[in-house]
């Protein structure tokens, strides 16, 4: 599965167990369990999936299947400031591709990657529903609208000085 090996601390294991119990260890609640776990850990490494597998009594392969099926779940940690560029149709026709290219250039990242210092990660997503502001970029929870390639550097600057 994932090449990154991590060691789960006992408290992390307990947290996963607590989440599973809150859904009565019901395998039908797997997606809700995964949502809660990702909220807690930021991503879903193989080790977390193994604990869930034991708790819900679902083969870990099945869980891996579900995690990789849905684009919302990720097995690699996101950056401290996740950058998402909307590639919905409205943003696309208003030039989102050029904005994405600029972010790739500025951050030196491809979509799905995280910077070495863990500060930024880059992803594209499909429509955040703010088509009136197209093209739209989100950094964390903050939305930037009508972004032009020239704005990219300034957006990143907001997050660079230890903010």
């Amino acid at each position: 599965m994932s090449s990154i090996k991590i060691e789960l601390r006992q408290e992390d294991v307990n947290k996963i167990k607590e989440i599973c119990t809150s859904f009565n260890n019901d395998p039908q609640e797997l997606i809700n369990v995964l949502h809660k776990c990702q909220e807690h850990f930021g991503y879903l490494p193989a080790e977390v999936q193994e604990v869930i597998s034991n708790e819900l009594v679902v083969p870990v392969a099945k869980i891996y299947g579900v995690v990789t099926f849905y684009s919302f779940f990720t097995m690699t940690p996101k950056g401290k400031h996740p950058v998402s560029i909307c590639m919905g149709t409205a943003c696309y026709v208003r030039g989102a591709e050029k904005v994405l290219d600029e972010f790739k250039k500025e951050l030196g990242l491809q979509v799905g990657q995280t910077t070495n210092d863990g500060k930024f990660s880059l992803s594209s997503l499909r429509c955040v529903g703010a088509c009136g502001l197209a093209p739209v970029v989100m950094v964390g929870d903050k939305t930037y609208g009508r972004v032009a390639p020239d704005d990219v550097r300034n957006i990143l600057k907001e997050y660079e000085e230890g903010k």
Binding site: P27, Q28, E29, L30, I31, L34, H35, F69, F72, R126
Partner: peptide
Amino acid sequence: RYGAGAFVCGEETALIHSMEGLRG
């Protein structure tokens, strides 16, 4: 119930599988 980002889940049978904790 929460989806997790899969366009195909707009199809009703896929949606139902997703609600059952399966791949959509």
